[in-house]
Structures are given as structure tokens and as C-alpha cells.
């Protein structure tokens, strides 16, 4: 039932979220592409090892970047499922050695989800003086029928940098619950940007991004953008805990809400246990004004399309 090609629906949804599909499918570009529990595309490059094991409901895999290896092109990851029902479990481990650099562009697509669950249990271990950039874009179809539960634990080694971008702003959401714990070692830098947009009352997002600044002079920035319309619920917590001298963090949260019954909260939570550490935060509420809506409708957009365009702009 699941063949070893990437289904057309998934390729299309990759386009929807702005992924350059030709680049993803190019046989030369490094990648790990999954269709449910089948590995349908795998390409390693020098210093990059990708190993996967197919499980009953998903795939377990190791992605390893060796010491001193800097991979220029993004490594494409695609976790796609086309059936409307079922469960997919992905257990990836990312290991980046010392003095290495890599960026991942992950695309999680469940275009037909009606009663579908995706679980991810990810681990990232970054060595010394390295850089890992991880971007994940989701597409959950039009039915709000996906339940998505990713959990990540990330260790950012001394003088290394971890950047994470997560966005769920196209299509519906369904139920999403994300938990990310990031531990920053000495002089490590962490930058997290998380955006989610719930568009109807079946959309419910809860995201908890937590950074623990454990090493001396470690730094972090968390940026969260939560939007809800037409009864959607989006709850975000940006947690930063500073436990070492010289550690500094910042949490920047913005909420945008529109329409009856919509709920958003993007809350910075800050704990400082060291006298020589500092964490700052800001929170703002973005609004969609009637005049903005009127302006876009006077160009022929419907009210929903206008709200969508304005919210995406603010995010």
C-alpha cells in the first residue's frame, strides 16, 4: 500500500509551504524522505551518514555529521503520510560532531488527515564549536484532522549554535502539542522561532519551548508568534531558565487574535537562579483592524482571505 516513491499530494504540500521541490527531489541533494514507514529517498554526502530502520508504524533513524564537516546545501527531511487515518512514529537522532555545520529543512505533511496521529521523539546532540540549523514546516491538510505530538531534546555543546524555526501557518492545524527542551552549554547560542496559526474551532495548538542556559555565558532568544481566528486555540509558552554566570536570554512573544471564541496566549516564563545571569522578555498583542480588512476587501479579497493575509504579515 505504501510504495517507495514520494506521493504527489506530499510533493504539492511541500510547494504550499514554500519548499523548493526540485531541490528536495534532486538525486544529488542530501536527504531522508519518508512515506509513512517507508524510506523513499535517502542520500548521504561526504561526512554525512543517514541510517534508517523501518518500523511497523514509522521509522527510527540516525543522522550523523562528522567532526570538521561543513555541509553547504540543506539536508531535506520529509515525513509524509497520505492516508487519512493511522499513526506514524518517527524517532530521529541528530548527532553533530565538533567544528561541523549542517542545516536541515524538514517538511511534515499530512494532507489528507482526518483521524491521523503523528508522533516524533527527536534528539539532537551538538558537539563543540558547531552549528545546527533546523527548520520544520508543517502542512496538515484542510480537515483539521491531524494530531501531532513532537517531543525534542537538544544538547548544544560549548561554543555551538542551534537555530530552530518552526512554522505551522498554512492549511489547518488539528491538534498539535510540541515540547522542546534545549540545554545550552558554555558559550552556546540558541535561537528559536515558533509560529502557529489556528484557523477554526477544531484547531488546537500547544507549544512549549524551554531553553536551559546551563553553561557560563550561554545565550538564547525565543521568538513566538501565536495567531487564532474563528475559534482556534493557540497556547504557547516560551521558557528560559538561566542557571550559570553570564547567561543571558530573551523571550519575545506576540499574540494575534480575531473572531468569536478564538483563544491565544503566548507567554514568556523566565527563571533566573544565578546572580550573574539575566533574562528579559516582552509580550505584545497584534491586531487586525477593520480598516486593514476593508482595504484588502476593496481589492476583491473575501473577509477570511483578508484576515489571513494580515495575520501572516504580522507573524
Amino acid at each position: 500500500m505504501y510504495d517507495r516513491t514520494l506521493p504527489e499530494d506530499i510533493v504539492q504540500s511541500a510547494k504550499t509551504v514554500g519548499i523548493i521541490v526540485d531541490e528536495m527531489l534532486n538525486p544529488e541533494s542530501p536527504k531522508l524522505l519518508l512515506n509513512y514507514n517507508k524510506i523513499v529517498g535517502i542520500k548521504e554526502t561526504k561526512g554525512l551518514t543517514i541510517e534508517g530502520e523501518e518500523l511497523e508504524n514509522g521509522v527510527m533513524g540516525d543522522i550523523i555529521v562528522e567532526d570538521g564537516v561543513k555541509i553547504k546545501e540543506p539536508v531535506h527531511l520529509c515525513f509524509g503520510v497520505t492516508p487519512s487515518e493511522g499513526v506514524q512514529e518517527i524517532i530521529p537522532r541528530f548527532i553533530v560532531g565538533d567544528d561541523a555545520e549542517v542545516s536541515f529543512l524538514a517538511h511534515c505533511s499530512f494532507p489528507n488527515a482526518i483521524k491521523f496521529t503523528h508522533k516524533m521523539e527527536g534528539e539532537m546532540i551538538i558537539g563543540k564549536n558547531s552549528k545546527l540549523f533546523y527548520e520544520e514546516r508543517h502542512y496538515h491538510g484542510k480537515n483539521s484532522g491531524a494530531k501531532v505530538y513532537p517531543v525534542f531534546e537538544v544538547h548544544v555543546g560549548p561554543k555551538s549554535k542551534f537555530i530552530s524555526l518552526f512554522s505551522l501557518t498554512h492549511g489547518t492545524v488539528g491538534t498539535v502539542n510540541i515540547n522542546m527542551d534545549i540545554y545550552a552549554h558554555q558559550e552556546a547560542k540558541v535561537e528559536i522561532e515558533t509560529k502557529a496559526y489556528g484557523k477554526n474551532k477544531k484547531d488546537r495548538v500547544e507549544i512549549r519551548d524551554a531553553v536551559f542556559l546551563e553553561g557560563k555565558d550561554s545565550k538564547s532568544i525565543i521568538k513566538m508568534r501565536a495567531a487564532a481566528t474563528n475559534g482556534g486555540v493557540v497556547l504557547m509558552k516560551g521558557i528560559t531558565e538561566a542557571n550559570a554566570p553570564g547567561a543571558t536570554g530573551h523571550v519575545d512573544c506576540k499574540e494575534i487574535v480575531q473572531g468569536f471564541g478564538s483563544i491565544v496566549a503566548a507567554i514568556p516564563i523566565v527563571r533566573v537562579t544565578d546572580d550573574h545571569a539575566r533574562v528579559t522578555h516582552e509580550a505584545a498583542v497584534g491586531r487586525v483592524s477593520q480598516k486593514e480588512l476593508d482595504t484588502l476587501m476593496a481589492r476583491g479579497l473575501t473577509e477570511d482571505e483578508a484576515v489571513d493575509m494580515i495575520i501572516r504579515g504580522i507573524m
Binding site: 486593514e292 494580515i310 504579515g313 507573524m315
Partner: peptide, 14 residues
């Protein structure tokens, strides 16, 4: 029918 407004609104991020 369309209107170019007297004081057009600004669109953040667009």
C-alpha cells in the same frame, strides 16, 4: 469598484 483611501493603512510584514 475600488477606492484608494485618503489615509491608506500600513501593512506590517507585507
Amino acid at each position: 469598484i475600488t477606492l484608494a483611501w485618503q489615509e491608506p493603512v500600513r501593512f506590517e510584514g507585507i
